[in-house]
Amino acid sequence: MTALVRYRLAVLLHSQRWLPPLFLNLVALAVLTSSDSGPLLSSYAVAAGAEFVCGVWLTAALVNAESPVGRAVTGVNAGGPERVWAGDALAGLAACAAPAVLGLGYPVVAGNHPSVTAAQLGVGALAMAGCACAAVSVGLLTSRPVIGRPGAAVLAAVAAVVLLLLVTWIPPVHETLTLLAAGRTAAGVGLPIAGLAAGGAVLLALCTLAASRRAGRG
């Protein structure tokens, strides 16, 4: 599995398709969190939202950077296409580490927050982890092997991102961002955000399986 993840990340890196989503992420952070003076967790609500959008894009780019025939070759060498999907999910999470670290660090450096504690960083990291799981789920389900037409794939991805960001009852992204922005202490929101991150991990496992089954029908 390590070999698959390394291969995916190498292909993504060489394709340079990582640049637009990371640039977008950085712009969002710069515009929305620079010189914030409120609680750090509210800045993290913005950063986690930006990480979510960036993560969807990175995951889809990671899968789509390989040609369909190349993907089939990798599937045979890995011992089955479903293993490639598992590798994609892990590689997607690894790729999300970039916007997550940016999102955790930038508000601390560029903002004027009254206090920065380890607990706040920890809660921020948990929120990033949950949003990364949701992002990779959407990215996999809107990648080329699942939705063949590029236009339809982009529309589906945008629709999924908007729904997850805005609709109250769809976990875990909206709920996580709301908790972060509520102005409560890190200790107060730590547990529910950890629960949402765990839910995100379950969602990712289910979506990886769904993408694999859906793509394998061909």
Binding site: V11, H14, E66, S67, V69, G70, V73
Partner: peptide, 13 residues
Amino acid sequence: GWVPERFPPSERL
């Protein structure tokens, strides 16, 4: 081992 009929790689590796 599988050798596809056409192998048009898009990778820059």
